[in-house]
C-alpha cells in the first residue's frame, strides 16, 4: 500500500511539475493580451450567425508610411491573425453550408498586408540604395526564352559561380530547334497581327454603330475612348447612316 501511495505521490508531483512548466512556457509562446487558445482562430461569438459584420477601410500606404518599424511589425501579426481567423470562418461557413457574412473583410485585410509589405520594401530599398547603390531585392531582366519569345528572368541565389555551374549552363542552353522557333514565331506573330487587326475593325464598326445611334454624341469623348479609330473615315463609310435630326 505504501509503495502504491509513493508512486501515486510521485506521479502527482511530476504531473504538477509538468503543469507548472507548461504554464511557464505558454507565457512565452503567446504574447497576445487575451488568451483564448484555439478559439482565436474563430470570430467573436457575437458575430456567429450574423448577416453582416461592419468594418472600416483597409490600411493605405500613406497611413503606414508614418508608422515606425516596430508598429508595422506588430500590425503585420494583427493582420495575419485576422486573416487566419477569416479563412477559418469562411471554411467553417462553407462546411455548414451557410453564407459567410461580409466576405470583403478578407480583401480589406489582404490589401492592408500588401500595402504594409510594400512600405517595408520601400524603406529597405532606400537603405540599400544609399549604402550599396543597389536596391537589395531579387532582380529580373528580359531575356529571349526557349520559344523565341521575350520572358522575364528572375535571378536566383547559387553557391557556385555560373561559369562552373554545369547544370545551370545546361538549363540555359536548352533551346528549341532554330527552324522550329522561326516557324513558330511566324505563326505567333501572324496570329497577334490578325487579332489586332480584328480588334481595330471591331472598334471601327462599333464607332459607326455609335454614330448611327447617337447623332448628338460628344465627339471628344468618342475620340478619347477610341483613340485608334479615324472618325472622318468612319463617317465616309457606307455603313454610316445617321438618323434625321429635326431641331
Amino acid at each position: 500500500m505504501s509503495l502504491l501511495n509513493n508512486i501515486y505521490n510521485q506521479l502527482r508531483i511530476s504531473h504538477k511539475y509538468v503543469n507548472r512548466l507548461f504554464k511557464e512556457r505558454s507565457c512565452y509562446i503567446s504574447t497576445s493580451p487575451i488568451m483564448r487558445d484555439l478559439m482565436e482562430f474563430f470570430d467573436d461569438k457575437k458575430n456567429w450567425g450574423a448577416t453582416e459584420v461592419k468594418t472600416g477601410r483597409s490600411w493605405t500606404k500613406d497611413d503606414l508610411r508614418i508608422k515606425s518599424n516596430t508598429d508595422l511589425h506588430k500590425l503585420w501579426y494583427v493582420l495575419l491573425k485576422e486573416k487566419n481567423m477569416l479563412y477559418t470562418m469562411e471554411h467553417e461557413h462553407n462546411d455548414q453550408v451557410r453564407l459567410f457574412p461580409s466576405p470583403e473583410r478578407l480583401d480589406k485585410v489582404l490589401d492592408s498586408m500588401e500595402n504594409l509589405e510594400e512600405v517595408v520594401r520601400e524603406r529597405n530599398r532606400a537603405y540599400y540604395e544609399l549604402e550599396t547603390t543597389e536596391i537589395g531585392e531579387q532582380t529580373h531582366k528580359t531575356i529571349t526564352g526557349p520559344f523565341g519569345l521575350e520572358i522575364d528572368y528572375y535571378e536566383t541565389e547559387h553557391s557556385i559561380p555560373k561559369e562552373v555551374n554545369a547544370q545551370w549552363q545546361k538549363e540555359q542552353n536548352t533551346k528549341c530547334r532554330p527552324e522550329d522557333v522561326k516557324s513558330f514565331l511566324l505563326k505567333y506573330k501572324e496570329k497577334e497581327y490578325l487579332q489586332n487587326k480584328k480588334q481595330q475593325r471591331r472598334n471601327f464598326n462599333h464607332v459607326i454603330g455609335l454614330l448611327n445611334r447617337f447623332p448628338k454624341m460628344d465627339m471628344e469623348a468618342l475620340k478619347e475612348q477610341y483613340p485608334d479609330v479615324d472618325i472622318e473615315k468612319a463617317k465616309a463609310s457606307r455603313k454610316y447612316k445617321p438618323p434625321l435630326v429635326f431641331d
Partner: peptide, 16 residues
C-alpha cells in the same frame, strides 16, 4: 494619425 516613424540608417529587419 499618430506619427511614430523615425528615420534611422537601418533596414526593417535590422531595427526589429
Amino acid at each position: 494619425g499618430e506619427v511614430t516613424f523615425e528615420p534611422t540608417l537601418k533596414t526593417f529587419e535590422m531595427e526589429i
